[in-house]
Design a protein around this nucleic acid. Structure first.
Lengths: 234, 234
DNA sequence: ACCTGAACACCGTTCAAGT
DNA sequence: ACCTGAACACCGTTCAAGT
């Protein structure tokens, strides 16, 4: 109907490339969830023999890795920023938005690294880590301290995203609070507190909560680490 | 070989029950990973027709929910403990150990809640939440504050587990540091810091890190919340 | 040398046929 | 009413056969 170039899926005979394959895979996951991403279905979406996809991804698993790589690459890290706290804050908010934009990819982001040793992971998923380490080292942290900061930061950030997405409901039409959360189904005897918290749950402001947590975490890390002898800054 | 009662899997003709089905499913996941948990394979493990499993779980998805429920039920919460910080600390360490004992289940714990609205989740997975809220309210927090504390705590805890399991390598035989982490494969130009941190990564002490983080988090939460008017304690 | 697609060994789930 | 298992509509991946 529309111009044949508007969507990769419709552009049946574009020359295949890893980029096109992964972009189409991401579209599919965003639109229909992880289960819809099969070799056969993706082949169909691209108007190609499913077998041809094995030129661009060794595996279905590699395809999944490729998708999370693609999403993580949308996350810019300015490692030269002299204000590491401001930069970490910005990255956190950007990652949060990315997660909200691609909720179906979050399980991948969180889960894929668990099945592959650090050094064998796709480079695209390791780059943000290296860049954040560089940011911190550039700001005067020792590499070991930078690792420590990274871990606290990353743990908090992923924890927050899991928290927020758990309470996020896809269909915003159904806005009757109790119905949305389905809390009315819980036995009142066993879950009095949870049921009573329905309004509080509905009012959850993820961005504010993230920001508040970051403030505490970053100042905590700063005070903890500034006691130690500083590296000479670049 | 051994007594036919020793392992469910060997005890071919035990009467089926939800408990037996889920326990066998967990064994299978622990031993061979999530992908090995199929209706057909589980039926085989139990010596039954795969279709008979649909009496105990509506779905494969329900089976997965059942497995995470089973693991979470191994987590005792003493909601009457007057020292909420000590109790949260203990729960955290217990959950960490549970995660290390069942690493293949962690993706389920982290991921399943993302696909089901709060109120439709299996009660077993909601009970720890309700119990922790009760613990906090019992200690004098308002319900809304309790929710806030729970979220910070839960986020931190799951973030930590994801962190630790990412660096955890299953096969401890292969103990040459660089090989274990596979870091030598990374291009030195692009990943100088990450490569240099191999020894630090190998020395990671999850329990100590968890404990340190908890100390900061809990005292932060306490000081933040004790400024507000306290509820009358039970 | 490259690409295609038939074939294999699996899946989850439905539902008709048996008891 | 309950249980069984054949059948359906899918999977990922291998590899022989074509070009």
């Amino acid at each position: 109907m529309a111009s044949p170039k508007s969507a990769p899926a419709a552009d049946r005979k574009a020359r295949l490339s890893r980029e096109l394959v992964l972009a189409t895979a991401l579209e599919l996951v965003d639109a229909e969830g992880l289960d819809a991403l099969t070799m056969r279905r993706l082949g169909q979406e691209l108007g190609r023999d499913p077998m041809s996809l094995y030129r661009y991804a060794e595996n279905r698993a590699a395809l999944l890795d490729g998708v999370s790589e693609l999403v993580l690459n949308e996350l810019p890290v300015h490692e030269e920023d002299p204000d590491w706290k401001a930069q970490l804050r910005q990255i956190a908010h950007n990652l949060r938005l990315l997660a909200l934009q691609h909720p179906n990819v979050v399980p991948l982001l969180v889960t894929r690294p668990l099945s592959t040793p650090l050094g064998l992971r796709p480079l695209g998923t390791l780059r943000p880590l290296e860049q954040i380490l560089a940011l911190l080292v550039g700001a005067g942290f020792s590499p070991a301290d930078a690792l420590h900061v990274y871990r606290a930061y990353y743990g908090f950030l992923y924890g927050h995203i899991l928290n927020e997405l758990q309470e996020f409901v896809v269909d915003p039409e159904e806005n009757e609070v109790l119905l949305r959360l389905g809390l009315h189904r819980l036995p009142a005897k066993e879950f009095p507190l949870l049921r009573a918290l329905a309004p509080a749950l509905a009012e959850y402001d993820g961005s504010a909560e993230l920001d508040q947590g970051l403030t505490i975490l970053l100042s905590g890390l700063e005070s903890q680490l500034s006691l130690q002898p500083a590296h000479s800054p670049a």
